[in-house]
Computed example of a mutant assay.
Amino acid sequence: MKFKKHIMIASVVIAGALTFGVLSTSAIDPFTSTTDDIKKELEENKGIEKKALVMVGETPITTIDLANYKSYKKVDNVKSSDEELLKELVIEELFLQLAKEKNVYATFEQGMAEAKKNRQILESQSQQVQDVQQKFIELTGLTEEQYWTDLAPKEYQKLISMQNLVKKLVEVGELKQSEDPNEFGKELREYKEKLFKAQLNKKVKVLDSSFTF
């Protein structure tokens, strides 16, 4: 399910932008057409042989994970290499495992509460906003109820865990707090890069030699 988080985040951001007037009606046309392309690719990805590319601790990141993540990333309209995308998946898993190690991993109940809150917000919005959200739900292959009671809570649980970890890192001085979001974003990216390099060939085991990092 790790690759589905990206599409969930995108759906919330786009729906939120529509709600507050940040996006116009015409601006969402590329998003809706892109979802059709993604849906087609996801079907094709089912024929890919599943094998582990990287182990992060005991968690494998597979060819299917990478292919689906690559498909979902079309929403960003930014081209990245397979190695860059795989690295993103590895860093995300490292971050989640670090959250567990530092005892700041959120509970499923917290994820459920966040999902419920966002569902209520979306249901109170215009039909246009709800239609955009529905498009993204369809990409997951789940019913609306399954999405909000299973996938969304688990993914919000991960998001909250990562937020908790960032707060913890600031508290203990491993990350420098900055009022400038761009500066803090740079600081966080550098921290993640150091985390990746520190764990490469240790907790992170590359199983496919075509990825050199």
Results as ranks from 00 to 15, higher is better:
97 Q>C: 00
20 F>Q: 09
48 I>R: 03
74 K>S: 03
14 I>Y: 04
99 A>Y: 01
42 L>S: 08
6 H>N: 07
130 Q>H: 08
213 F>A: 05
131 D>T: 05
49 E>M: 13
27 A>G: 10
194 K>C: 01
195 L>P: 00
204 V>F: 05
121 I>Q: 03
91 I>N: 08
190 E>Y: 09
152 A>L: 13
163 Q>T: 12
96 L>R: 05
65 D>I: 14
167 K>D: 04
131 D>A: 10
208 D>W: 08
96 L>W: 02
210 S>V: 09
16 G>Q: 02
101 E>H: 04
112 M>C: 00
8 M>D: 12
51 K>N: 05
54 V>L: 06
64 I>G: 08
211 F>H: 05
67 A>G: 09
158 K>Y: 01
127 Q>P: 02
112 M>N: 07
141 G>Q: 06
81 S>I: 04
86 L>V: 11
174 E>I: 10
181 P>T: 07
54 V>A: 04
191 Y>D: 04
5 K>F: 13
28 I>H: 09
170 V>R: 08
127 Q>L: 14
2 K>F: 11
70 K>A: 11
3 F>E: 05
45 N>I: 08
45 N>Y: 05
101 E>M: 03
204 V>S: 03
114 E>V: 01
112 M>G: 00
103 N>A: 04
70 K>C: 01
79 K>R: 09
104 V>D: 15
55 M>G: 02
33 S>C: 00
114 E>D: 03
94 L>W: 10
35 T>L: 04
22 V>H: 06
8 M>F: 14
95 F>S: 14
212 T>E: 03
91 I>H: 08
144 E>M: 06
62 T>V: 03
123 E>G: 06
12 V>W: 13
95 F>E: 15
170 V>E: 14
5 K>M: 13
196 F>K: 10
115 A>K: 08
170 V>F: 07
49 E>F: 14
175 L>M: 11
28 I>P: 06
34 T>E: 12
1 M>F: 10
162 M>S: 12
31 F>Y: 15
112 M>H: 08
15 A>I: 01
44 E>D: 12
73 K>I: 04
57 G>D: 04
41 E>D: 11
115 A>V: 15
211 F>V: 05
181 P>A: 09
46 K>W: 01
32 T>W: 05
70 K>H: 07
18 L>V: 12
145 E>W: 01
152 A>Q: 13
104 V>P: 04
102 K>D: 07
147 Y>K: 02
171 E>C: 00
178 S>T: 06
19 T>P: 01
162 M>A: 14
148 W>A: 05
165 L>T: 13
197 K>Y: 06
49 E>R: 15
207 L>A: 08
63 T>R: 01
80 S>L: 07
25 T>A: 11
122 L>V: 14
119 R>V: 05
195 L>I: 11
181 P>G: 08
80 S>E: 07
71 S>C: 10
19 T>A: 07
140 T>G: 10
96 L>C: 02
55 M>W: 09
23 L>W: 03
64 I>N: 12
195 L>F: 09
188 L>P: 02
193 E>Q: 15
186 K>Y: 07
61 I>Y: 09
30 P>C: 13
206 V>E: 03
99 A>D: 01
115 A>E: 15
117 K>C: 00
209 S>C: 04
29 D>C: 00
3 F>Q: 01
192 K>C: 04
204 V>N: 04
120 Q>V: 12
111 G>T: 06
22 V>K: 09
151 L>H: 06
83 E>Q: 15
140 T>K: 14
